[in-house]
């Protein structure tokens, strides 16, 4: 009786189909990869078939709400994104009398030109602000100017990074070009350990995910040095490639790092840093594609070309941007 009055009805696949189709188009316009847009919409559809909707609520709004819930869930980190906490707890963990304290190490990986070196420098700035002593390891020994690029950043950061006297500091560890990146990273970590650095930031050369020799070399660096965090750097500009980049970086690291260095099990990506956020307006769908593929959190967002252009992801803002017309 009431049901008829308020016009409530049970949602069928037919009701949902056109709405979901336009949702999918909408997500793709927001730069969500096609595959991910489809899977997200499928999930939303499945959650709604057979659900009752009230008369004042159109199918449209119901789907929209379900979509909002779904992408919020995908974007919400499942593991801690508190890097400072993670660093502090490693640095303050008890040691036996014979053990030497090891620095916390973070490796930045990703395809060419996405912003690894620049955002590594931003993370460094942030760490210095928080009073840490940071060593940057120049492990891109391939690309022209890669070492000098970091040298300039270290020079700038040494001048900038004082925090009311309780200053952190920064130094560059470099061995020029053409050398084995895994070896340099290893030396850098040892140098940091012996010279009382808290954190080592390891810059690596950009590489294409299908380039097996280069992916093996990266996996070797990971296997030999077992960094505390492997950060995948991807740009908000990337389209459907986001899916392929992340799944292949993760898989290659896992597959190739398990055998090579004898560390036992392979290591994959621990989190993402999404750069060039300032270049895409509200087309922030890459963030959704990236988190969907890995299930790992976005630890930082890069929002520009200066040292302070580093943010934490605001899930609600991203959801709003993706849903907005």
């Amino acid at each position: 009786m009431f049901a008829r009055l308020t016009g409530s009805k049970v949602l069928t696949e037919e009701d949902l189909k056109p709405v979901l189709e336009s949702m999918k188009q909408h997500l793709m316009k927001k730069n969500v990869a096609k595959d991910i847009a489809e899977r997200v919409c499928e999930g939303v559809g499945e959650s709604l078939v057979g659900k009752k909707v009230g008369g004042f609520q159109s199918t449209n709004t119901t789907v929209r709400q379900a979509l909002s819930t779904s992408i919020t869930r995908i974007l919400t980190p499942k593991t801690s994104t508190d890097l400072l906490l993670s660093i502090r707890s490693k640095l303050s963990s008890p040691l036996t009398s014979t053990q030497q304290r090891m620095p916390y190490s973070i490796t930045f990986v990703g395809v060419n030109g996405v912003g690894k070196s620049t955002n590594l420098s931003k993370v460094c700035f942030w760490l210095i602000q928080n009073g840490f002593k940071v060593l940057i390891a120049a492990c891109d020994t391939f690309r022209s100017g890669a070492v000098e690029q970091l040298r300039v950043h270290v020079r700038n950061l040494s001048m900038l990074g004082t925090n009311n006297g309780t200053a952190g500091r920064v130094e560059l560890y470099e061995r020029g070009y053409g050398k084995d990146a895994a070896g340099i990273a290893k030396e850098a970590i040892a140098y940091a350990r012996d010279n009382d650095f808290d954190v080592v930031l390891i810059d690596t050369a950009g590489r294409m995910q299908d380039n097996e020799p280069l992916m093996r070399a990266l996996a070797k660096l990971v296997a030999v040095n077992n960094p505390d965090k492997i950060l995948f750097v991807g740009e908000a500009l990337v389209g459907n490639e986001a899916v392929d980049q992340l799944s292949k970086f993760d898989r290659a690291l896992r597959d190739f790092s398990s055998g090579a260095g004898g560390m036992g099990k392979g290591r994959g990506i621990d989190g993402m840093l999404v750069t060039k956020w300032d270049t895409v307006d509200d087309k922030v769908g890459a963030a959704l594609s990236m988190t969907y593929v890995t299930g790992q959190p976005i630890i930082f967002v890069g929002t520009g070309q200066t040292y302070t252009d580093l943010r934490q992801l605001r899930v609600q803002n991203v959801v709003q941007a993706i849903l907005s017309d």
Binding site: N31, E241, K283
Partner: peptide, 8 residues
Amino acid sequence: DASIGQAA
């Protein structure tokens, strides 16, 4: 860049 998405 060949990988650019909808911002192109």
